[in-house]
């Protein structure tokens, strides 16, 4: 399964990359790490990932807009939003645009692995 990690924080990207190698997530292959929605869309078109972890508050292009555009390009892409924005309308908006899950920051290692397991479950 091809995974694209999108977050403007390098530390968060590195952390998600490390956790994606967890034994509970077999066959997860990281195909890219993007710092904003615009960079993510370029990588998305090139790599056609199956799964995306998506931050929301990012420079240039935010995560809700990037989610909408990715779903338009590949409607079976699985998008897990990973964001600190803890109000309900924002989560609902991301889900409405095509995200399959929402994980609030700060997250524990287990929470991220479980959230990824849940969104990729057939």
């Amino acid at each position: 399964m091809k995974l694209l990690i999108v977050d403007d924080s390098n530390v968060i990207r590195q952390r998600i990359a490390r956790l994606a190698a967890d034994a509970r997530l077999p066959n997860m292959d990281i195909v890219g790490q993007a710092r904003n929605g615009a960079e993510a869309l370029l990588m998305f078109q090139r790599e056609k990932p199956d799964v995306v972890t998506m931050d929301l508050t990012m420079p240039e292009l935010g995560g809700v807009e990037a989610t909408e555009q990715m779903v338009a390009l590949k409607n079976d892409v699985v998008i897990l939003v990973v964001s600190a924005l803890s109000d309900k309308p924002t989560a609902l908006r991301a889900l409405k645009k095509g995200a399959q899950g929402f994980l609030y920051k700060p997250f524990t290692d287990d929470q991220l692995v479980t959230a990824l397991q849940e969104v990729v479950r057939p």
Partner: peptide, 8 residues
């Protein structure tokens, strides 16, 4: 960012 985001 997380503290401000959580405050929402």
């Amino acid at each position: 960012n997380t503290l401000a985001g959580n405050a929402r």
